[in-house]
Simulated assay, not measured.
Amino acid sequence: MITAYTLNGKSLEIQPLSLTDKLPANTLWLDILKPDEQEQSWMKQLFVEEVPELDELDDIEASARFYRDKDGLHIHSLFPQRLGKEIDGINVLFTLRNNMLISFREDDLGLMRLLRHYMRQDRLEVEDAPDLLLEIFQLKIEYISDLIEDGYKTLEETAKEVLQVEDLRQTMSNLMHQEDGNGHVRLALYDTRRALRFMRRTLRKQASDEQRKWIDELLYDIESLLPHTQFLFDKINFQLEAAMGFTSLEQSKVIKIFSVAAVVFLPPTLIASIYGMNFNFMPELALKYGYPLSLVLMLLSACGTYYFFKRKGWL
């Protein structure tokens, strides 16, 4: 799907494009989502060099994520997106050329839908393509900040669930989802910081003073959010260790019960074993009350052992 966003004053108008349409002259942003083969061919008119492929979006090398060529400035940026309890990372390729921004992505993003919502309400004011890219990064950082706040709320709930031993499996599952999501958030922050530093270094002559100040403010926001992600990692690890500790404690209690039961029944077992031996001469076997006496002796030995453990505080 190809969508053009044309500049009208300081606001943007949304215009879906078909393969037969020409690119409007005042296009500020061209968004390309999941292009098929025909749309890939249509994209050749936009690029002087090679048309980007979907499998190139996940490259992690800095030389493949941030570079400049004849087509302009290329920035691969990682966007976190919540899908139920999980947070996934989606890569988007931005190409900044002259006064047009081209975005190329494989999956839909809630952040892009939010951006279009702002456009329809005329809440988005931009003057050129770098302004638009910085606006996208600002929304991305705000979204990451919301994810971090959600992480704090989730950990407050799991902290109470850790004490409920019967539900530890679900609690540990939630903590693992939270740890994975926090990893995507932290990676997105690092990636955005690298992208902004690349923009500041590459556009130091073309960018206006306001744009350079904007980039510095976004970098400051990222630096202020990174300690929160580290704190969340520490808190998640603490709760995981606490949950595993409670599990080990409950297992120890079960093992303790079996151990005490084995020790309590050891004296009666010893008495029964003695009188179960097949010797010809055992005087107690001839006693009239030998059988009930042995039962009483086994009962007293078991009770005495239990009382001894109880007095020592081992039960």
Rank of each mutant, 00 (worst) to 15 (best):
F79D: 05
Q40V: 02
E156G: 10
T3F: 04
P80E: 07
L218M: 11
L163S: 11
T95F: 04
L78F: 13
P292D: 03
W214S: 10
Y275W: 12
I32Q: 06
L295A: 04
G313A: 11
H117T: 13
E217P: 00
D234V: 01
M100Y: 01
G304Y: 06
T95R: 03
F137G: 07
M119A: 12
L54G: 02
V263P: 08
N237P: 04
L33P: 00
L19K: 08
L101C: 03
F308G: 06
K288T: 14
Q251H: 07
R113K: 15
D216N: 15
A25G: 05
P130L: 03
L83F: 14
D167H: 15
N8W: 02
L187E: 14
G183P: 09
P52R: 08
V264W: 05
L101H: 00
R116H: 07
A195D: 06
T269N: 11
R212L: 15
R311W: 10
I271A: 09
E179Y: 05
L78M: 06
I255T: 08
F258D: 10
H76R: 08
T192R: 01
L219F: 00
L73G: 08
F279R: 01
S273M: 02
R123H: 13
L23W: 04
E53Y: 01
L270K: 00
P268E: 10
Y306Q: 07
Y307L: 15
S173M: 09
D58G: 06
L147E: 11
S248F: 08
Q206K: 13
R116Y: 02
Q81L: 10
W29Q: 07
N91I: 00
L155V: 05
L297P: 08
D122E: 15
T229G: 13
D21H: 12
Y152H: 11
F66C: 13
A25Q: 09
F309M: 09
M43H: 00
L297C: 12
V126K: 08
N237K: 09
L225Q: 14
S301D: 07
E56Q: 14
R123F: 11
F47Q: 02
T20N: 12
V126G: 05
Q239K: 06
A262D: 05
P24T: 04
V254S: 07
F66M: 10
V296A: 15
